[in-house]
Design a protein around this nucleic acid. Structure first.
Lengths: 86, 86, 86, 86
DNA sequence: CACTGGAAAATGCCGC
DNA sequence: GCGGCATTTTCCAGTG
């Protein structure tokens, strides 16, 4: 599909690569758009009198709690595997 | 939003706050989904024989160039305004 | 202490900088040494019949729990600040 | 270490496991302590006017060079062995 | 406007 | 050797 020498890509490979790159860039744009939305929500909240620092901590805490739960499930699963109880 | 005693939030304020938090969490989920998509594209590219590390560099480079170009454009715009050439 | 032009550092400044670098490098070496110790403990545990994957998950989970607790304390603190209850 | 039914760990094994975990956690704490020290050195350097980003690059570079040199030495050693020149 | 802290990206590491 | 995971580094917004 590509030659292993470090010299050149086939024209088709270049095209293919370009498509991958462009797909990624489109996705990154979307991602950025959403990040902007998040920012907007915070600033809307702020202009409604809420303390964004507190809000950010709440969000962070809840995210951590979710992760902890996930991790604890994963641990259980790992136990099962280790003990051959699947 | 805080009541004057600064000790408690009105029930309505709590509800409102919760809605903000949830909007943010939904957006963050979407963002994560897209990040996962990006991952997938990279790994698809990899399984097609492309070097993802290089690809990442390309993406970073193009992002930088876009950024630089934007700044140049903004500067040009500023000059135009300053010179009344809009 | 240093001149802002990007041209040269005084000999004294160079020496000072070198000392900072060397302190850092010493610390990094220590850190690496400890990381090696950790690896050794895992492999000792493994050779005693324990499943290291499970162990790693346990460690990760406990670390997360600690973080969650910390985060939750931080949140409380932030509430206090936001509400002027310090 | 696991009993034959693969369902439970002996109390002694649990204790043993706990000890391994705790040793690891102690080591990780030490590691974190040192990482903090590194941070401190950087910020001390910064407050003395040095550019930490550059410093990080220097440290990385020297580490790489050390690594490269080690590899060359190892290679040389390998040659010697292969040629019976020890 | 420099600094800190938090999010994102990149790199390196470990086990399979 | 590869994929996943942890660490590290870089970036950026918010803050004083």
């Amino acid at each position: 599909m590509f030659d292993t020498s470090k010299e050149k890509l086939e024209a088709a490979a270049v095209k293919h690569l370009r498509q991958f790159i462009e797909r990624i860039e489109r996705l990154e744009e979307e991602k950025k758009g959403i990040a902007d939305d998040v920012r907007d929500v915070y600033s809307e909240a702020k202009s409604n009198g809420y303390d964004t620092k507190t809000m950010r901590k709440i969000v962070a805490l809840r995210r951590m709690e979710a992760h902890t739960r996930q991790e604890s499930d994963a641990l259980l699963e790992t136990y099962r595997e280790a003990l051959g109880l699947l």
